[in-house]
Nucleic acid binder design. Structure first.
Length: 580
RNA sequence: GCGCCCGUAGCUCAGCCGGAUAGAGCGACGGCCUCCUAAGCCGUAGGUCGCAGGUUCGAGUCCUGCCGGGCGCGCCA
């Protein structure tokens, strides 16, 4: 029950009436205006800028539209008062009864309250995390992962049929590097004096336990084997171990993907060849020679004819290579196949969450999807800016080469998934983020997530007390909500009514952080109301000799709690029963 | 050199599709617990929204140009 959507309809009808009556030009397009909560609560609960927006196309003054519009809106059920303000805003003050209906809807729907059906069951594939299985997840991965996970939940909450996907980049040379690194650790585990990790290997110590597990399984049978002999089994073993570890790390973050797609398996199944053949049939593949990029000197640049994808046909800056000089497919070719595979599994809408360092790759991938799906599929890419890891104000350079990795798991174990997720979700995805390990650990007790969880816990506490006092806490839908007369109660009521709109906007904009900020506001309204009860006994929630009033207040609290729980659920944060 | 993203209070960040007097948290300072959880509430201080133009009834928001920071710029992933 989205009040703002409802009143948008009312404003539209009123404008249409004005057009019919000739007070607006017959050909006027009724577009571009909005219905929003006014910034100043003194203006009521709903405001529209329709008169301002339409004045110019209607070739009249804003007030000439605002006045008759206000007259019509005054007759709408649930509207208590309509005022026209300065330049031409029309402000509505709503009857309490309207908010009472919202509250009853919230009580009736529980955590499903506000879940608008924007998607109508459309299938959407959200690919996120997709870190290479060559090591544990680090903090930088955590951001895109949490964002993607919350976005997936948000879309699922707004009527889309969502699949959460992880693309495993296990097709390239990096798995060979991983296998060599494991082989080195394996020899170490057997007690051979092999020295430090060779140049180009993965120096982190996370392969040490993997090597021991391999010794446990196979003993020293690979000690004297040749590289071609051990390469495949070592690669498989290491890959499986890394993937298991990544899944475990994800679980600690409360992230669970539905599908893991393996690049290597797509390759082995010949999907890439079929994909390229498909592109060829569409005339999107040719052999040509690329110009060297301007402005950036590339050493050992050799003009070379190669297999190219006609990305420029879809708005990319240049055509893109599909095949390496070695004859292998490029990562790009494989990734087109990956998206083609999704498309053939029924996903016309695909969303990828990438790190900002892949920003230069967006256009070509979108071009690839357009090309391979004949324009029927669409790829939306959400970039997460990189995380600058700090330690006590000093930038911490993470380098895999130096083996100095701050793992995601370390941080999550330290502060917990709720704190970590909330930190990542109180930011827009496209703003850079400083993540100071020391501060995050020190200040995790100040994390706003507790503010929201505390509001939930306090409400639970009231219900526990109510039950102890023998008060009925069920069937609150028929409570006399008109008894809710305090300004603090109204504030909570109005905050609750904002939720459906917030959810819809967050989904449309792919911005789960809006929910986090909204929940802080709602929690604030709850905390303020709580404090009013401390200052004035008559405003306490449980009033011994006035059960109807108590029930009305419980109804208010329960719907607030429901919204908090539902919102936290979308963010993947636990609503708690108690804080102590 | 070119492309994308960012620049808002001391710090970390919101600011809805262009809307009314630019907000929150942390930090600083001052108040509030005989009573449903003080992980809370109330107040004070703190801003030329990077700079300069432009668009318009109206710009933190859109456009152009600068400045500053991040990322990227065949066959790596």
């Amino acid at each position: 029950m989205n009040l703002f959507a409802i009143f948008e309809g009312e404003v539209r009808r009123a404008l249409e009436r004005l057009r019919e009556r000739g007070e607006l030009p017959a050909e006027l397009a009724l577009e571009g205006w909005t219905v929003e909560p006014p910034r100043d609560p003194g203006h009521g609960q709903v405001a529209t800028n329709a008169a301002l927006v339409l004045a110019k196309p209607a070739r009249t003054r804003p007030m000439a539209i605002a006045e008759p519009l206000a007259d019509l809106l005054r007759r709408v059920e649930g509207v208590a008062e309509v005022t026209v303000a300065k330049p031409g805003f029309v402000n509505l003050r709503l009857d309490d009864a309207v908010f009472h209906r919202v509250l009853r809807a919230a009580l009736r729907d529980g955590e499903r309250f506000g879940l608008v059906d924007l998607g109508r069951g459309a299938k959407v594939n959200v690919e996120y995390c997709s870190a290479n299985p060559t090591g544990p997840l680090h903090v930088g991965h955590g951001r895109g992962t949490v964002y993607g996970d919350a976005l997936a939940a948000l879309l699922a909450a707004t009527g889309f049929h969502v699949t959460r996907e992880y693309y495993v980049n296990d097709g390239g040379a990096q798995i060979e590097t991983l296998a060599r690194s494991l082989h080195h650790r394996y020899r170490e585990a057997l007690g051979d004096a092999v020295g430090p990790m060779p140049e180009g290997g993965y120096p982190g110590d996370y392969l040490v336990p993997v090597a021991h597990a391999l010794v446990e399984r196979d003993g020293d049978r690979w000690r004297d084997a040749t590289e071609p002999e051990w390469m495949a089994p070592f690669g498989d073993f290491a890959k499986a171990a890394m993937l298991a570890r990544i899944k475990d790390d994800l679980k600690a973050l409360r992230v669970e993907h539905d599908v893991f797609t393996s690049e290597a398996e797509l390759l082995a199944a010949g999907v890439v060849e079929r994909c390229i053949a498909e592109l060829e049939e569409r005339g999107l593949v040719y052999t040509g020679t690329l110009e060297p990029p301007k402005g950036k000197a590339i050493e050992d640049w050799e003009p070379r004819p190669q297999l190219l994808f006609r990305a420029t046909a879809f708005g990319d800056d240049t055509d893109r290579p599909l095949q390496r000089s070695t004859g292998d497919w490029t990562y790009f070719a494989n990734d087109i196949a990956n998206h083609w595979d999704k498309y053939r599994r029924g996903f016309k809408e695909m969303i990828d969450v990438w790190g900002a360092d892949h920003g230069g790759y967006v256009k070509r991938m979108q071009a690839g999807v357009q090309g391979i799906t004949g324009g029927d599929g669409a790829l939306e890419v959400k970039l997460c800016q990189l995380v600058q890891l700090m330690d006590g104000g000093q930038p911490l350079k993470m380098s895999k080469r130096a083996g100095r990795i701050v793992t995601l798991r370390d941080v999550v174990d330290e502060v917990g998934p709720d704190v970590f997720r909330f930190i990542m979700l109180t930011r827009k995805n496209d703003a850079a983020l400083d993540f100071d390990l020391q501060k995050v650990v020190e200040q995790s007790k100040d994390n706003p997530v507790f503010y929201v969880q505390y509001a939930h816990a306090r409400i639970r506490s009231v219900f526990r007390h109510a039950a102890e006092a023998g008060m009925a806490t069920a069937e609150l839908g028929d409570a006399p909500l008109a008894r809710l007369a305090d300004e603090g109660e109204r504030a909570v009521l109005e905050a609750i009514a904002q939720y459906p709109r917030t959810l819809a906007l967050a989904a449309e904009h792919r911005e789960p952080h809006r929910i986090a900020f909204y929940l802080e506001e709602l929690a604030g309204a709850v905390h303020r109301l709580w404090t009013r009860g401390k200052e004035e006994a008559s405003l306490r929630f449980l009033v011994e000799d006035d059960e109807p009033l108590t029930r009305a207040r419980l109804a208010l609290l329960e719907s607030a709690r429901t919204v908090i729980a539902g919102g936290l659920r979308v963010l993947g944060v636990e609503p708690v029963e108690a804080m102590r």
